[in-house]
Design a protein around this nucleic acid. Structure first.
Lengths: 227, 227
DNA sequence: GTATAATATAATGTATAAGTTAATGTATTG
DNA sequence: CAATACATTAACTTATACATTATATTATAC
């Protein structure tokens, strides 16, 4: 508790503004496309404009928002085309990570960690808990990025996850039950165990291409052009 | 002339600070690893600290610098491992672009544009003009990114090009004459013409993997751990 | 009624002062 | 000589005042 307080005190206002704003964006608390003026946001976050501006520069650089001078900032709405672009990048880089891992191999401990996420996903499905399922699914993908060992690749993918997060969470309940995901993950793990990079990449790519297509189609189907 | 002045006037001080600082970084005008205090940079660029801070936030976000509170900012030195990481990402995303292009095909005009860069590269080699060669080489890669049509993928790759630019320019004169590059490029173009995505990707990947290995090896060989 | 010019307003850019805090220097003690 | 405590200095954070400029509103001319 005390360390939390102390840690909280050491975070600058600009860092706090950044984190709060980013959380609101990812939680769909700020309607995409709507403009928010600097003074509105400063009041909302309880800071002056200087730390707020710093936060806005970071978020714009990360592709989550766009600042239009004199009109304010807006959460960038995501179209189906945007999602297709983003998934193309995520797929490419994750496959690169999978390829690296499969060629190098993983320790038994690392394999266990991956398998545990599959168990969690299956349990979450049994309990009809899509939020837990999504977290376990993300754990799987994140572990792949961790094991790859390329910190910049991981950071780049995480950034694109952020950008697509709202759309992924928004459409979670609109998709069919993700029973295939667990199978795909298991097959990727098997291929990694066998050090079959080509197969691991092929399965993972198909997994991501399918997932991306589902998402893009939902956006088109529901005409959600302001996600 | 007047439009230049007017355009110049409309660029904010923070944008100007960002561009000047970025140019200095890419030109190796600021020694990597050395710290520069905010007030030093503000004086150097002739601005106050507010626009400078904004510039620093952007550059740090782009991975070109690191700001260490109370010590100032430093251009991030690049090690051989860093370059290996960066080239892994560039290679993966460029190959994704090549795959997309080769599967979709290019117009005759687009093919011509690519071939023109090969001509420029050959001419530059004849004249022993490595700077011109480097520009033509970059033109080739940039066109691939343009034709792919994924603006985020292009932006991400350009950002990593930026980060690696200093190392690439620094080592330009330390590498063997890049005669293979022109051949590789030509073969990629031929495979794209034939809509052979697998072949185009394979050649391009090998091209980039080789280029990356050369760079990484030069950094290791010359012990250039502060590039 | 429409187009244009003038004016007012509001949003943002920028500079800088004040406050906070971390780094450094110095003195003291064991 | 090393470790620790304290004082000083310097770097950065933050708030806000002022300047600039883009946008909105109003007035005027045709």
């Amino acid at each position: 508790m005390e360390t939390t307080i102390r840690k909280e005190k050491s975070v600058s206002l600009s860092q706090r503004a950044y984190e709060e704003l980013r959380t609101k964006i990812l939680n769909n608390d700020l309607r995409p496309g709507r403009f928010f003026l600097e003074k509105e946001l400063a009041t909302l976050l309880g800071v002056s404009r200087t730390p707020l501006k710093e936060a806005l520069v970071k978020l714009e650089n990360e592709g989550l928002i766009k600042v239009q001078p004199r009109h304010g900032m807006q959460v960038i709405p995501l179209s189906a085309d945007d999602m297709a672009e983003i998934y193309q990048i995520i797929t490419s880089l994750e496959c690169e990570a999978v390829s690296t891992i499969a060629r190098r191999g993983l320790s038994n401990r690392e394999i266990s960690q991956l398998e545990e996420t599959g168990i969690s996903m299956a349990e979450a499905l049994e309990q009809d808990d899509l939020q837990s399922w999504a977290r376990a699914d993300e754990d799987f993908h994140r572990l792949l990025l961790d094991f790859c060992g390329n910190t910049r690749l991981k950071q780049t993918v995480l950034n694109y996850w952020d950008i697509s997060h709202r759309a992924r969470m928004f459409t979670l309940n609109l998709r069919d039950k993700p029973v295939n995901s667990t199978k795909d993950h298991q097959q990727v793990i098997e291929a990694i165990k066998a050090k079959n990079a080509e197969k691991a990449v092929s399965i993972h790519r198909q997994h991501r291409v399918n997932g991306g297509a589902v998402l893009v189609n939902i956006i088109k189907q529901y005409r959600l052009d302001h996600l």
